[in-house]
Amino acid sequence: MARIVVVTSGKGGVGKTTTSAAFASGLALRGHRTVVIDFDVGLRNLDLVLGCERRVVYDVVNVIHGEARLQQALIKDKHCENLYVLPTSQTRDKDALTQEGVAAIMEELRQDFDYIVCDSPAGIERGALMALYHADEAIVVTNPEVSSVRDSDRILGIIAARSRRAEAGQEPVKEHLLLTRYAPKRVQGGEMLSIDDVQELLRIPLLGVIPESESVLQASNQGIPAIHMKGTDVAAAYEDVVARFLGEDRPLRFTQPERTGFFKRLFGG
C-alpha cells in the first residue's frame, strides 16, 4: 500500500513542481516504486521538468473520463527505474477533476506503488484541494518571505480541516516544511526571513532547505530533475531531503553564506 505525499504551498511559483520531480526521483533512486501525479490541470509543467513532454498521449483527465486506462496514461521516467509519471491535461480546466475520479485513481495506484507524489497547483481552490485530499503526508514548500509563509499557513489549516484524514477523524496528515529558494546572503542582509523566523511562524518540523541556485533553471530547461545535477548544491540538498523523509538523520547544509574573497582565501574555503 502506497503512502500518498502531497507537495503543496498555497502560493504560486515557490518550487512545488521542481520539488515534486526531484523528490519523486530521489525516492525512486532509492529503490521505491514511485508515481508522481500532476494536479495542475491546464498548466502542465511536471512533464517538462521531467523531460517526458513528447511522450504524453493520455493524461489524468482522460483516465477520469474513461477515455483511457490508467496503465495507458502512466509514463515511465527515462532517468530512473521505479519512477512513473501521470501527466495532466493542458486543454482542460480544474473542474475536469472529479472527487470520485481521483479517488479511483488513488485506489488503483495504491496497490502497485510505494509512494504516490502529488504535485499541487497553486491556490486554495478545487485543484489544490483535490491534490491534498488523499494525502498521508504533506510537504509544504515555502520561500523565505512573508507572503509565502502566510499562504503556507493557510494551506496547513486546510490540510488540518479538509483532508480525507481530517474528515474521517484519523491520525492527522504528517506535515513537513521545505524551505526553498533560500539565499543565505540575503537572509543575513535581512532581506529574507531566516529558517528560525519561518519555523517560529509555521511551527511544523523542517524537512530541509534548498538553496537558491541557477542549476534549477538549467535542469528544468534540459528536462532533468534537479536531483540528477551531480555536484550541485541543489542536488545534494534534495538528496538530504529524501534521506530525512525516509528517516535518516542528516545535518542541514547550504544554509550559511559562502565565504568569498579575502575570507575565503584566508580560511581556505
Binding site: 486554495i124 481552490e125 489549516g157 486546510i158 488540518a160 480541516a161 479538509r162 477523524g169
Partner: peptide, 12 residues
Amino acid sequence: ERPAEPVAAPAS
C-alpha cells in the same frame, strides 16, 4: 467572498 473557506474548529 472566497467559496473555498475552510474549517470551523480543528478536528481534535
